[in-house]
Design a protein around this nucleic acid. Structure first.
Lengths: 336, 336
DNA sequence: GTGAAAGCGCTAACAT
DNA sequence: ATGTTAGCGCTTTCAC
């Protein structure tokens, strides 16, 4: 920057003013600076600016994994929105593993970005308060009581309840659940399980532990695997609610592999409304949880928290609207 | 860091040595430092380290979009591999738009990371040399002649040729191509188109411009749209090679919507071997281009370039092995 | 409207 | 094996 100043015949401070949009500057000064920048092909050293200003212009997005359509689409929207606000996005993935989640919360990178959008999977609310190092944080999922965090959350419970109730209304009586956890339940899992149980209860149906199937992850192979176990069990099943679209599509595929006719023999419902749910054969009924709005809300809240020192995180979660998207995988149940 | 040094009764330099793994240090010194760090809950200020050392410990991954399964899976592997090497990954998306691609190449963020992995879509080789600001760069796609860049590339041409030849061998005679460009062709597009044409020619089949269909992007809706236009055209088609899996799955869906039986009436082949190709109904024959190996190779090459000042980028591209994965969407052609 | 000087928190180079 | 000095390239403060 010194070089630019010298070439333009001004001080470094004036060049700095130029970059920071300082308003009072003579037109000829501005032009000389611009000419010098072009001439020298100068780019500001962000490390130096960061050191001095205490800001980095970057936020971190810490999620379980990118190779899950929902999270990839979420990340895409976060990157776009951040770009609008002049922020870069550093992506860390945790694989949903507790150890990595703690690392992210305690590590130095978290304190060296302006803020973090964080999706806890293995970590509970207490853990987060305990391990958190004091940087601006927006949580995806449950509220951490007392923590100074914004939190954005999908309508997990209500969305699931609506979807399962829809199956009940269509006449299905043996509705399986795919995607529970054999070990520690994540917040989203707990809420979706609750929505499922409530809908069955409200519909006067029995809640059967044997048709609630745990999976390790939430990818297609897990869904296929779960479906195979379900069919092997001999339990009667006429519909499946899966905790996300990938599980539902994997389950549907496994059922078809075994010679069942979809959706005639078994109906399927997913959650997320990722692109592949529209284009599966048959197309998949699913819950659209307002993904883009949520991602934008997360970035906006974080940005406000970063740039306004008086900003106080909202007590209430930011929840988006959801919508049940009805497609061909859930026909009205024909009398058997 | 000064605080830590004071509390531990050593100089700042010794604390710095501690963080940088300097080997010669008395055990009790080390322990006093560790105690002080814990006591103060100290985390290093990376901006200061970056300013001083001229490195940031971050690389940038500049790709078209994250909400494309192939790129999301690629990004996931890049993040993992970078993490292994102690590097953070800043993700920028360009949407494949020329203007954004230039911005990324010229902007200040590129000069403020240690290196960049870059996927040009709209930008040609000349553009890249012209706009590049001198930072370590690994390109995905074609070789930029004379540029000091490593480049990693999928076996676009050979993979496509093999896939289309397979259709020819099975007896298909009217093989459409989905995913060409109406405007400027990207490197990958050009190579896949060439592979397609070569395979047809080698098989003694006519190359028909009318069954080569352009799409705006490479997502499912684009594939569906292209398939509809193809079917509306009245051209005879018994198989489709799509430039990626998403296009193939969208096209397959559209054909099914119109009452065609898949794969009996039309066979489909994709490219990428994303997870959804395994679990579609019917499962999709596709080219597996060694995605993970490629992502790891890209990070490794960049890391070497960053850390070894004598490293000279290879002349030859890093190409991975590919494999044709045969599934149910391409049965041997029964005599009609 | 612009300049001069100080200093953000680290590490390279050298000293001990 | 550890301490001292200087300075990375910016922005802040205050003076002009």
């Amino acid at each position: 920057m010194g070089d630019v100043a010298r070439l333009a015949g001004v001080s470094a401070k004036t060049v700095s003013n130029y970059f920071n949009g300082y308003r009072y500057m003579r037109e000829d000064t501005r032009q000389r600076i611009e000419a010098a920048i072009t001439e020298l092909d100068y780019r500001m050293n962000l490390s130096a600016r960061n050191l001095r200003s205490g800001k980095t212009g970057m936020i971190m997005l810490a999620i379980a994994e990118l190779d899950q359509a929902y999270l990839a689409e979420f990340a895409q929207t976060v990157v776009n929105k951040a770009e609008e606000l002049g922020l870069g996005v550093l992506i860390e993935t945790t694989g949903g593993r507790r150890e990595r989640e703690v690392e992210v919360l305690e590590g130095s990178r978290g304190r060296n970005v302006d803020g973090v959008i964080y999706e806890p999977v293995a970590l509970g609310a207490e853990d987060i308060s305990k391990h958190h190092g004091g940087f601006p944080l927006v949580l995806m999922g449950e509220k951490v009581l007392g923590g100074p965090f914004d939190h954005v959350t999908m309508p997990d419970e209500a969305g699931t309840r609506t979807a399962v109730s829809h199956l009940v209304d269509l006449g299905y009586q043996n509705i399986a659940l795919i995607g529970t956890s054999a070990t520690k339940e994540s917040p989203g899992q707990a809420l979706r399980r609750k929505g499922y149980i409530d809908a069955l209860t409200a519909g006067g149906l029995e809640v059967r532990e044997h048709i609630m199937v745990a999976t390790k992850r939430w990818h297609r192979p897990d869904g296929a695997d779960a479906m195979n176990r379900l069919l092997d069990s001999g339990e009667q099943v006429d519909a499946v609610f899966a905790m996300n679209d990938a599980l539902a599509l994997g389950a549907m595929w496994a059922a078809e592999q075994r010679g069942l006719r979809i959706p005639h023999d078994i109906a399927f419902v997913g959650f997320d409304d990722t692109e592949d749910a529209t284009y599966s054969i048959p197309s998949l009924t699913t819950v659209s949880p307002g993904r883009d709005a949520l991602a934008r809300a997360a970035v906006t809240a974080l940005h406000r928290r970063i740039s306004d020192p008086h900003y106080v995180p909202g007590e209430a979660p930011i929840v988006t609207d959801y919508e049940l998207i009805m497609r061909k995988s859930t026909p009205p149940l024909a009398p058997r």
